[in-house]
Computed example of a mutant assay.
Amino acid sequence: MGKIRLQKFIANCGVTSRRKAEDLIVNGKVKVNGVIITELGTKINSTKDIVTVNNDIIMENNNFIYIKLYKPEGYITTVKDQFARKTVIDLISINERIYPIGRLDYNTSGLLLLTNDGDFANKLMHPKFHINKTYEAEVKGLIKKETIEKLKTGVTIDGYKTAPAMVKVIGNSHNKSNVQIIIHEGKNRQVRKMFNAVGHNVISLKRTAFGKINLDNLLPGKWEYLSNDEINSFG
């Protein structure tokens, strides 16, 4: 193989996504033939050059893995946790190194995708692809029609206005509302903050779909490999 950009090579090795690979390079965590490389866009010979990340030698991975997991509440969406809390990787019993695509916060359950294909992960996380994420939220209070319209057109959180969303009430009782909301952005704790902005604190939150992939019959804490149709559904 000829020359390849260093961040793409790192992603191909299944270490992380291409965007996070760029962070590793800029922060001096990557060496090529023993020399620290911090310049993005550096090209290497993938068959001859020796690349290390945090001093571990990495090699390209052609055995790509694609998994969907029903994340329960109480798990961290990361590979390792400095406080020894349970992570989503603890739920998956395979030998290959994989990592989550995006995040679900500690108290959010539902569909999480994991892979060792950096290009695939980068595509799914990049804002320009506008991949829909579907959530079901139980919120405090009986939500009004005008509040739904506010959520649909966008609300201001953390100093920015959210993109238009698809929102509908799917049930309510005992001063609580169940709401389906579909967004394509992926800001930190975005759905919770959107409901907080309109005066309805979230009681529980579950992601039910990522693009055309949904939980199907998965139970909390269980996982399965994506089918070819699911993988190809992102185009």
Rank of each mutant, 00 (worst) to 15 (best):
M1A: 08
K3Y: 11
K3S: 07
Q7N: 02
V15I: 14
K20C: 00
D23Q: 13
L24A: 02
K29A: 01
K29C: 00
V35I: 15
V35S: 10
K43E: 09
I44D: 06
I50W: 08
N54M: 10
N54P: 07
N55S: 09
D56H: 15
I58G: 11
Y66P: 09
K68H: 05
K68P: 03
Y70G: 04
Y70D: 04
Y70V: 09
I76G: 04
F83K: 15
A84I: 05
K86T: 02
D90T: 08
L91Y: 13
I94Y: 00
I94Q: 01
E96N: 14
I98S: 03
P100N: 07
R103W: 02
N107W: 10
T108N: 04
T108S: 10
S109R: 14
L111F: 06
L113M: 05
L114Y: 10
T115G: 07
H126T: 02
F129L: 00
I131Q: 11
N132P: 07
E136R: 14
A137N: 14
V139I: 15
K145H: 02
E149A: 08
L151W: 13
K161E: 08
P164K: 12
A165N: 05
K176D: 00
K176W: 02
I183G: 00
I183T: 03
V191L: 06
V191E: 03
R192Q: 10
N201I: 09
V202H: 06
V202A: 05
G211Y: 07
D216N: 14
N217D: 15
I231D: 05
